[in-house]
Every structure is written in C-alpha cells, then in structure tokens.
Write a protein that binds this DNA or RNA. Structure first.
Lengths: 110, 110
DNA sequence: TTTTTAGTGAAGCCATCACTTCACCAATGG
DNA sequence: CCATTGGTGAAGTGATGGCTTCACTAAAAA
C-alpha cells in the first residue's frame, strides 16, 4: 500500500472529515460554513482541513478574510487504485488455485 | 454517506488493519500467521479481525483450533460506490455552473 | 495422559487525536 | 476610527481505541 493511499484512509477514517468532504462536494465552502452545520468550532475545522489538504483530498484559498475550501476529487484516485490492487491480487490467487487443480487432473483429491 | 461506507472507512483508517487486509489478499491466513509479521499479539489480531468482519471486509472460519481468515473483496464495493458518488456530485455542480454561464450569455461578467 | 499449540475474554494501560478555550491578527462595515 | 466578522496559533483536556498481560479453553502432538 502506497503512503498516499495510507494518508487517504487515515484522513477518511474520521467521521467529521467525511462530513466535511460531503459538504464540500456540494460546492466550495468557507471555514465557518463548514463549522456551522457540524456543530464544531472553526478552529477544529481548520485542523481537519489541514489533514484533508495533506492527503490531497481538499484545497483552499484565502480571499480577503475568508478561506474558500474545495474538494479535489482526483485525490480519491489512489483509494480506487488500492481497492483495484487488492481485488486483482485476490483474483490472481484464485486463478493460480484453479491452474493447480487443472494440472492435477480430474482424479485429484480422491 | 451510507453507514456501511462509514464502517469501511473506519475499519480502513487503521494501518494495522490495512496491513492485515494486504496480507489476506495473498490468501487465507491463520490468526497467528497474521500476528507474526505484524509484530503484535494474537489477541490484537482477533480484535482487529472483528472490526474487519463487521465492516464486511473479511470473514473467518474456525477449523479445529485454528481460525482461517480471508478477505471479502466485495466488501470494498461501497468504498468505490462512495467515491463515485462524490465525483458525480462534484461534476454535476460544475455542469450546473456551466449551464448558468451559458444562460447568462457571452456578455455576462463584464 | 501430559504437553504443546492456537485462539478467546476480561481488564487495564497509554498514546493519539479530536476538540475546546483564549489570545490574537486582518479584513470589512458602519 | 471603532466594532464586527472570519480565521489562525498555542496550549490544554478528555475520550477513544490500539495493544498488552493474564487466565482460560480446546485441539493436536508426543
């Protein structure tokens, strides 16, 4: 597992950050616009935002005194890459298993 | 976000559990076969295993005195479903944005 | 049968981390 | 200018959760 994917799962492992991502998926939001529906302080949002940004799941930009936060859907890529990898590995294993049985012939296991 | 997906991200939020999944992707493993390379006790593995099972990411079966643990790749489905959902929502937003600009006509924003 | 191996359950320890408060800065509005 | 609004940084609190130890059960081996 890549360290990117690890950071992603770590970031998504928290319910508040998941909620933030869901909110931002509806469009850019200010820090307080995120804090309000979540019932937490803007300070807390700022801390979560840093984690999401470092994981590549969000980015933000300050204009005037308000900071606009957006998700980066591309950030989800390595999650999908990882799940595909696990699936592939598992299926390859089943295939190898099937090959082995084939080689052993139909009389195997009697 | 569905509660299944939440459970999945919670489960995958821990590095040890991620490592367990990676190990199991290579084939079924006993509890101690998982504990050994991870450098933790079998008790700890048992606890993680319960979380993974409840999240639908693994299943296990006890034969004799050993418990065989396997991953359930289907369990990853709702992670992918969720990432697709977020992407879709975001793209829909961009589309709406584009439509609005179209309706406003080329003279908009002057 | 005795011993060893594989795993479970309960209980406790400890570090991480989510969150708060408080002080502070900078932009905006009156 | 003064008050308000939006956000940041540092420091502290509290709870969750990952892990351990210890006592125990059951299967397999000797």
């Amino acid at each position: 597992m890549t360290s990117e994917a690890a950071a992603l799962f770590d970031a998504m492992g928290d319910p508040t950050r998941r909620a933030m991502v869901s909110l931002m998926a509806r469009g850019p939001a200010s820090v307080s616009a995120l804090a309000d529906p979540l019932g937490i302080t803007v300070t807390a949002v700022g801390q979560h935002l840093r984690v999401l940004e470092q994981a590549g799941l969000a980015c933000s930009e300050k204009r005037g005194r308000t900071r606009y936060c957006r998700i980066r859907p591309e950030g989800l890529d390595s999650i999908e890459a990882w799940t595909r990898q696990v699936r592939r590995e598992w299926e390859a294993r089943l295939e190898r298993l099937g090959d082995m049985l084939d080689e052993m012939g139909p009389q195997a296991g009697r």
